[in-house]
């Protein structure tokens, strides 16, 4: 059932990048929104491309969050390029293209919206990704289909845990039971592929020497000064710049630690 051909708009090189698909309900909960956003942002920060289906709900959140972090994102759509569905995501479609993202479809550009054909794109979503993250899915949800495709295609399937009493948690909880990996943070996904590199975040070379001394153990500017024999004014400048970049954090007592 592999597609005969793929239409690609935008940056075609993204297709060969490491990508994670984030899928979930169109009709999502606050819980789903929160974690779709968190995972999409954290993965983007680590240079992972986010794939989703340009649908409402979790899909939209994932695309927007990736763009917000200046990350890359691929939208696989179930219609032709000239008939974006749903209508209100037309702006998002343009925004993805403007930000060096890419749109993929197996349909002719002029193909009309046919709701029954849309779920077919799910196999492409899982196919392009190295792993699929399932945020939310009710008992009979399209997202479950994507998850099943992922298993068939031998891709990694990740799920966030849910309260057993929520309906939207049915899909993820079910797949966890079947052996999908339970994840609580983006790091868990990265570790699976050994994509997690220390110091992934770009650090200005002039601050690198000071950054080396900051760890999970709190340290003060004084102690850094004693260890490095550097001027306190340089250290304070570096600490401030690192804090501004979100790399380190200031805690009570004016001490510094690595931010998570």
């Amino acid at each position: 059932m592999s597609p005969e051909k793929l239409y690609v708009q935008g940056n075609i090189h993204l297709l060969s990048k490491n990508s994670i698909a984030i899928v979930g309900s169109r009709n999502c909960t606050q819980y789903g929104i929160k974690y779709a956003e968190k995972f999409a942002k954290d993965l983007s920060k680590n240079n992972i491309c986010i794939i989703s289906g340009l649908a409402k709900g979790v899909d939209t959140i994932s695309h927007i969050s990736a763009l917000a972090e200046r990350g890359k994102t691929i939208a696989v759509i179930g219609t032709g390029f000239n008939n974006i569905y749903p209508e209100e995501n037309k702006d998002l479609y343009k925004k993805i293209l403007e930000n060096d993202g890419c749109i993929v479809s197996e349909f002719e550009p002029e193909e009309k919206v046919d709701i029954s054909k849309i779920p077919r794109r799910n196999r492409i979503i899982s196919g392009l990704a190295i792993g699929v993250l399932l945020i939310e899915a009710r008992y009979r949800s399209g997202s479950n289909i994507t998850a099943r495709f992922a298993i068939e295609q031998n891709k990694e399937l990740f799920c966030i845990p849910h309260n057993l009493e929520t309906k939207t948690g049915y899909g993820p909880n079910y797949f966890i039971k079947m052996g999908a990996k339970l994840v609580t943070q983006a790091k868990d996904i990265l570790q699976e592929f050994e994509l997690l590199e220390e110091n992934k975040i770009a650090i200005d070379s002039q601050y690198e020497e000071i950054y080396k001394y900051i760890s999970a153990v709190p340290i003060t500017a004084n102690e850094i000064s004693i260890k490095t024999n550097k001027n306190i004014s340089d250290i304070n400048e570096a600490l401030f710049m690192l804090e501004m970049d979100g790399i380190i954090k200031c805690i009570p007592g004016n001490k510094y630690i690595i931010s998570e």
Partner: peptide
């Protein structure tokens, strides 16, 4: 820039915590 950066470090009570 570096002067501003250092000056902000001496505003302890403005820190979030």
């Amino acid at each position: 820039k570096r002067h501003i950066a250092e000056a902000i470090q001496y505003r302890s009570l403005d820190k979030k915590y």
